[in-house]
């Protein structure tokens, strides 16, 4: 059987507002396009914050289900990505509270995730302490630290998502780093 030579040429980009309008009109392909554009970053942040792939997956799913349902009410006052991250953090907060209520064991899983699967480059004890130290940060500090230092969000992006001033965001990061230094200084100097 003759095989067809296939090549898809680059096409002109459809803008995000156009995609949003199409999703609101009921277009699943457009919905998938929006999802593809934003889900990787949201999922990565979710894994960082909850420390469990399965929970992060549920969190991401819930974020997009809520977002698609609420999209007709999205007014475009902020960027869609900002709006989606707000939903994700809200869902994440709910998830963490629910899991903490459910059992202390699951809380341990979230806050002090298993470190056995990580690489051998760092001292296992240091990695464990690092985990515990980050997990012990107040939630607002930890979220800021994870978003900025681990996932590369700018202060402007974080401030918009969290609804605070950029200066507040910088202060929180400063405080988070100071707490981590204090908690880990003995290990880092070894």
């Amino acid at each position: 059987m003759t095989r067809v030579a296939l090549a898809i040429e680059p096409t002109s980009a459809v803008t995000e507002p156009e995609l949003i309008a199409r999703v609101v009109a009921g277009d699943r392909v457009a919905a998938r396009s929006l999802y593809d554009a934003h889900a990787p970053r949201i999922y990565r942040l979710a894994v960082r914050l909850v420390g469990d792939d399965e929970v992060a997956r549920e969190l991401t799913q819930e974020t997009f289900v809520r977002a698609f349902r609420q999209l007709p009410r999205f007014r475009g006052d902020s960027a869609l990505g900002t709006w989606l991250h707000r939903i994700a953090l809200s869902v994440g907060s709910d998830t963490r509270r629910r899991l903490k209520r459910r059992s202390e064991h699951e809380t341990t899983l979230l806050d002090e995730h298993d470190v056995a699967s990580t690489s051998v480059e760092a001292d296992p004890d240091l990695k464990e302490r690092l985990h515990a130290a980050i997990g012990a940060l107040p939630e607002i500090y930890r979220t800021t630290f994870v978003m900025h230092d681990l996932e590369g969000f700018t202060h402007g992006e974080i401030a918009e998502v969290l609804g605070v001033a950029e200066g507040t965001c910088k202060s929180r990061l400063f405080a988070a780093r100071a707490q981590l230094r204090e908690a880990l200084s003995v290990f880092m100097k070894e």
Partner: peptide, 11 residues
């Protein structure tokens, strides 16, 4: 700390 955390904290 940032380098370590990027690689080892819930990566």
């Amino acid at each position: 700390l940032r380098e370590l955390a990027q690689r080892h904290y819930n990566a």
